[in-house]
Design a protein around this nucleic acid. Structure first.
Lengths: 151, 151
DNA sequence: TTGAATTATCTTAATATTAAGATTATTGCT
DNA sequence: AGCAATAATCTTAATATTAAGATAATTCAA
């Protein structure tokens, strides 16, 4: 009979596996559209949440600052995103999705959503609700405790 | 009121978030030991499952063949792993953990397990059991459906 | 208001990862 | 046996990511 530690590790393993395989569906779909997953993630963030300071993008997608610069550069080259200086704080740049970026996502998003729905179709609607509640709780607590030097 | 697609996407988001933050704990711990997460993942696989053909490592950790070669090279340089040719099939190489690799994991694993336990401590034991059951089901079905060209 | 500490972005070099295809070995068909 | 198809690993080049630290702007305390 497994103790608390074994159970926690087991949870980590099945969490990772589930995430990997659902993500595999999503990434395969994204690459079909000529973006890599990071670029898509940033674009979607800007689409749904509006213009963001680069740093906040990094916080939300867990990326180092050097990589943010690189990814935003790529998206600017593809004309899906533009940098806009912040008038209040001249250290800050906002990344903002362009018309072209919006059009791209409007085109790609419905199919992408369907791909994700297929990927998680192994759970019933009720099971999804349960999983969402548990994962939300887990994610919030893991994020909180990460900041503490406790580990 | 959210429909099935929205709910699925929401599940994907909270799954990704939870996985990212729990993983953040684990990775921070791993880097303290001078390995990167991929190297640690391979080493742990070999530790728990015994010698593996390189390709099977790639299947289990979702890695391309070029990267397997690279990672096993690194682990061989660190003398934590050795390649062993397969006598039955000369195309195949097994990767096998060394004594040194075993000693390394024996030293690192208990603390690592504790870090993971802390990371998921936001759920009660009962919630962990529920989450494990749901995630196991989700992972298996997502893996299965990935092979189909359905997406 | 100066200067120390902090913050945001960027730069560079090192490292990690993928993609494409080469090489070598095996399998199965004829 | 001989050949085509498949499979496992490796190689190379391109791409992505991190780590470390540089630069520039801001904040805040003295």
């Amino acid at each position: 009979m497994p103790n608390e530690r074994d159970e926690s590790l087991h949870l980590f393993v099945v969490l990772s596996r589930a995430c990997e395989w659902v993500t595999a569906h999503a990434h395969r779909d994204i690459r079909r559209h000529g973006l890599n997953p990071t670029e898509y993630g940033v674009l979607e963030l800007l689409y749904h949440k509006g213009p963001q300071p680069l740093q906040q993008i990094g916080e939300k997608i867990l990326m180092t600052s050097g990589n943010i610069t690189y990814v935003i550069d790529k998206l600017e080259q593809k004309q899906l995103v533009v940098r806009k200086p912040c008038p209040e704080d001249r250290r800050v740049s906002f990344a903002e999705i362009t018309e072209r970026g919006v059009a791209f996502l409007n085109d790609a998003f419905p199919a992408h959503q369907q791909v994700v729905a297929n990927a998680v179709a192994g759970l019933t609607s009720e099971e999804k609700r349960q999983a969402i509640a548990l994962l939300k709780k887990l994610g919030i607590s893991a994020k909180e405790s990460f900041k503490l030097p406790a580990d």
